[in-house]
Design a protein around this nucleic acid. Sequence first.
DNA 1: CGTCCTATTGATGGGGTTCAAGGCGTGTGG
DNA 2: CCACACGCCTTGAACCCCATCAATAGGACG
Lengths: 236, 236
Amino acid sequence: MPLTTRLRRYGRLDAAQATPLERMPFVEKTYARGETIIRRGDPVENVLVMTSGWAARSRVVRSGNRQIIHILLAGDLMTADAFVLKRMDHQIEALSTAVVRFVKPGDLRRALESSPGLSAALWWAAAQEDSLIREHVVRVGRRPALERVSHFLLELHRRLLMVGQATEGAMILPITQEEIGDALGLSNVHVNKMLRDLERRGLLRRRKTVLQIEDRAAMARFCDFDEVHFHLDDAA
Amino acid sequence: MPLTTRLRRYGRLDAAQATPLERMPFVEKTYARGETIIRRGDPVENVLVMTSGWAARSRVVRSGNRQIIHILLAGDLMTADAFVLKRMDHQIEALSTAVVRFVKPGDLRRALESSPGLSAALWWAAAQEDSLIREHVVRVGRRPALERVSHFLLELHRRLLMVGQATEGAMILPITQEEIGDALGLSNVHVNKMLRDLERRGLLRRRKTVLQIEDRAAMARFCDFDEVHFHLDDAA
DNA sequence: CGTCCTATTGATGGGGTTCAAGGCGTGTGG
DNA sequence: CCACACGCCTTGAACCCCATCAATAGGACG
């Protein structure tokens, strides 16, 4: 289960403590690419966990433009604030075929109570998402397009590695260039030009949906990327 | 105490329940405009609460440009994730003279335990900040400059109203146009032009640091602003 | 009364959008 | 099994929003 894999990175969670999480009752639903999983305004009644695939938190503004706020990958919590907020202020949509696990808040609560390290680990996961979104603000607000694309891809690669969905040098990108643009505040046309530029510079290679990053360190230097905001060594 | 004022908006917190929050032991420090309150990389040892003034979460990128991620006002929690994250991934700096209350995590924990509604209310406040930051991504990524400035000002006004720091038609803006630009991913020059444009359109009036919004509804229509992301009616 | 910071304004230039057209791969129905 | 449609990628051209540069003005403060 990808969520468990991810929480183990927190460092304080062993296999035994994770068991209640795996044992929670759930219902799984599969969504097709492009389908809306939760609409803005919907009541938040369940805790949703991504089991596989890609999804996105997004908003559509009056002009019709879409802004992708955050990409959701396997192991991500989609409604961490289910206990507090009554209604969704944004929508979540599937970017690829996506499997989503629905858990009742009560069942999660019981799992948390039965294992002390678990709630700390889930808090950490939620705080990590917050941190990623803060970094996204910086990326969109103050980085030039070329670095912006590069930085975004490195972050995705790092996240996929955390849940065992990528290798050291490659990952599968199931999303379109238009969607990358919607995440980064760029046009699909310009994303294309930036990707080709990164390829021309030898920082990237692409074949269909496969994306290779030869030299992660070089790319990180190129776009001013670091891992501080992942909080990977934050076990207390 | 502004934090209490704000939490009352959550709806489930009465005066009696808020008492432990007001009674927590604390140390208060005052920061001058421009001073850094917490540095990126600093360990998170206390819970910090804004008592008065303005501050900002920000990051400086390699080019030297600053991105303001979120504006902090009186009543805001500056380190809600103090229990989970070990180190700051961004900095917090004072935008005006700012008074900050330092509370020990243990003391907060005790206050939370002594009052059932309190932790829910604090969770709500934290979730509300998350929500505001998500909206900020949309604003910076997909709104044209004129609407961006307008939308930003309306949000600040709404937030100041929540803590009794603004009147229906006016607020005090203690920050510079350059800082507005750093929040919105714009240059100080362009912010100036947008402000003057809003003034010319009769949506705004300015005298020194006083900013008047004649017709909030008209301005909200103008920049596609709504209050969904404030979650003001989210008492369970 | 000079100094420094902020606001203001115009001129110029560039990074990125928009428009448009073509190519490529994949699925689909006749 | 081919023809066509459709979605996505690619590329060039024109344009525009906003950044940058520069210069002035206007406080606030010592």
